[in-house]
Simulated scan of single mutants.
Amino acid sequence: MKTDCWQTKPTDRFLLKWIKVHLASRITPRLLPWKWLRPWMITVFSACLGVFAGVVFALGWAWFAGCVAAVSQVMDGVDGQFARLTGQQSRAGAFLDSVLDRYADGALMIGLVIYLIQIPVPVPLWMLLVLGSLAVVGGSLVSYTTARAQALNLDTGRPTLASKGTRSSITILTAWMSLLWNGMPIIALVYLALHPNAVVMIRLIRTFHDGCGASGMEGEA
């Protein structure tokens, strides 16, 4: 076993892996002396930062929102590393992390849309609302279809570039670039509305093409 196996999970991809290896791993060992600290505390702290980033976005402070979201993204990698190093991994902790991630992602997207409405950008209000809705739904469905496919042992193809790490990084970068043009986050919104939903559609087509669809489908509450 590699001595650095605590830094990432086998399912981590692309930017998320880079963030964990090069940023989160520098913070995690410094938290080990805090014997009272539990992984779920870090998870909740990260999610609260993510929601706060959305609030800051909505208030019109895009650059600051990007900074808060960046810290949230790094801390989101710390909780799992801390759990692995301290032997406190649990399915309940992984579930909590996944659920709170969706709240943080949703808050950031809503804040992004409110920010763009207030500027305003040369895009109709109805289109901003449609793009925002697609972004929230698409981001959640990328994560949901990944988990659901694993549970059903379905092959969804190669790892997607529309992972949480990529989605968050693009939002953060465009928020920082708002210093050059305050409408720059519209690029992130368009990407978040199109790419994740395209990935979901491709996954649906792939599973049905492979014969995993019509017969034996089960409903879900």
Rank of each mutant, 00 (worst) to 15 (best):
G138E: 06
H22A: 13
G60E: 11
I202N: 08
R102Y: 04
L192H: 11
A104R: 07
L204D: 01
R13S: 05
I119T: 04
Y191D: 05
N153G: 08
I110E: 03
S133F: 15
A135Y: 07
Q73E: 11
I42A: 04
K17R: 15
A149S: 14
G93W: 06
V136L: 11
I187A: 15
I186R: 05
V21F: 08
V137W: 10
G219E: 15
W36A: 12
R84E: 12
A53E: 05
L37K: 05
W36H: 08
P10S: 03
V123A: 01
G93F: 03
A162V: 08
M177N: 13
I172K: 07
W18D: 04
S46G: 07
T166V: 10
L31G: 07
I187Y: 11
L125Y: 14
W61N: 15
L15H: 01
L192A: 12
R102T: 08
R26V: 05
I170V: 14
A53D: 01
S133V: 00
R102K: 14
F95H: 05
G54Q: 03
D155N: 07
S143T: 13
L152Y: 06
L32R: 04
G66H: 10
L96W: 10
L141H: 06
P29H: 04
A104D: 12
Q150P: 00
A58G: 15
W181F: 13
I187S: 02
A147K: 11
G132I: 02
L108I: 13
L16T: 14
A62T: 15
L180I: 15
F95Y: 14
G50I: 04
A175V: 10
I172W: 06
P196Q: 02
I187N: 08
M217R: 15
F14C: 00
Q73P: 02
L15T: 11
S140L: 13
P120I: 00
T156F: 07
H209A: 12
I27C: 04
T156K: 03
T207K: 10
D97Y: 11
I117T: 11
A65L: 07
R148D: 10
L192S: 13
D105M: 06
L180N: 13
V99F: 15
V121P: 07
A214Y: 15
P10L: 00
Q118A: 14
P185Q: 11
Q81H: 04
G80M: 01
D4Q: 05
A107M: 11
P122F: 07
E218A: 15
S72M: 08
L194S: 01
